[in-house]
């Protein structure tokens, strides 16, 4: 427990800003902090850990406040001091963790950082992390969850930004975090220009993995191939359209027969010349020759016109072919 302390003024020159051992916040968001400090000053003291032999102080709680004060040109900060002879690294980090948890929830990257620090800096055993700390962080107490979050900690900076911006799902980020640094570095710019729905993200990664395994190419080679890069750069398309186009490309490469069948179906369907209110769809994946026909009308006249269009389509040679696509 933190004993009642009397805050003291500590020169910022004695604070080691490079040491981020106890940092939890992913984003320091200094603009808002500086505005707050300008308006009302430093309300709460930070917590610092005194290094042995007087070699300055490590930041335990208050990274944003201290960076803000430094940015504002302040020379000192109000701080509670812990001494390294009295507080172990684990104790100090737990103070930082509880200080943060008391007023906010961690985002996935912060939870990952906490677990990484507990394991690798504070030497907390995996079993304890799973049983005690995962629930504390609002996570399920399973080994694979711990492994996922430990991997997530190594995510490439640009991908971290995409995750926090909601452009990547957590599972996609976890998957990328497990891949090589080279892949993360090379894929990040592509993902920055493209948007995929959550389900498409999963599919695209799976398709790319399969294509890599089939062709012997690396995932980097698949995901940064010429065609993909060219789609990602296509300024005529929205970022969502680019995503769909990349998915389509990978799907065609992975499933050439299914893709050809779909294209053939669309071509024959178009040849029937039916109005847009009539929808024709094949059995899923052409499992049977069955064809589903639906149409919407809002008047008797529209009904008659649709029926006539269907009659005309019935005489079209493409109709037979629709039942024999594969």
């Amino acid at each position: 427990m933190l004993r009642a302390m009397i805050p003291m003024e500590v020169p910022l020159s004695e604070v080691d800003f490079e040491d981020e051992t106890f940092r939890i916040s992913e984003d320091l968001d200094l603009d808002r902090m500086v505005a707050s400090l300008n308006a009302v000053g430093q309300i709460h003291p930070v917590v610092l850990l005194e290094r042995a032999y007087g070699n300055g102080h490590r930041i335990v709680c208050g990274f944003r406040r201290l960076h803000g004060l430094r940015l504002m040109g302040c020379g000192q900060a109000s701080a509670n001091l812990l001494h390294s002879t009295e507080s172990s690294t684990l104790e100090a980090f737990l103070k930082a963790m509880w200080d943060n948890l008391s007023h906010r929830q961690f985002n996935p990257l912060e939870a990952a950082r906490v677990l990484h620090t507990l394991k690798n800096v504070c030497s907390v055993e995996a079993g304890i992390l799973v049983e005690r700390f995962l629930p504390l962080l609002g996570l399920s107490p399973h080994c694979h969850v711990l492994e996922s979050y430990l991997a997530l900690h190594g995510l490439y900076p640009e991908l971290r930004r995409l995750l926090l911006a909601g452009r990547l799902t957590l599972s996609t980020a976890e998957c990328l975090a497990r891949s090589t640094p080279e892949l993360q570095r090379k894929v990040a710019p592509v993902l920055g220009k493209v948007r995929f729905s959550a389900s498409l993200q999963r599919e695209v990664l799976e398709l790319a993995e399969d294509l890599g395994a089939i062709s012997g190419a690396t995932l980097v080679e698949v995901l940064t191939g010429t065609e993909i890069l060219s789609i990602a750069e296509d300024s005529n398309l929205s970022s969502f359209q680019r995503g769909e186009k990349i998915h389509g490309l990978l799907y065609r490469l992975r499933n050439p027969r299914v893709a050809r069948a779909r294209e053939a179906f669309l071509a024959e369907k178009a040849a029937l010349g039916l109005p847009g209110t009539v929808r024709l769809s094949p059995d899923p994946f052409f499992e049977s020759p069955r064809l589903r026909v639906e149409f919407d009308v809002n008047s008797a006249q529209a009904f008659h016109e649709t029926v006539k269009a269907l009659e005309r389509a019935g005489l079209n040679a493409s109709l037979d072919r629709l039942f024999n696509i594969v």
Partner: peptide, 20 residues
């Protein structure tokens, strides 16, 4: 094994595209 041209079928199982 996992790299054939599979499509989802009944009960969520994957199986080869029907023409195959």
């Amino acid at each position: 094994i996992p790299y054939g041209e599979f499509v989802p079928g009944n009960h969520g199982k994957l199986r080869y595209f029907r023409p195959i």
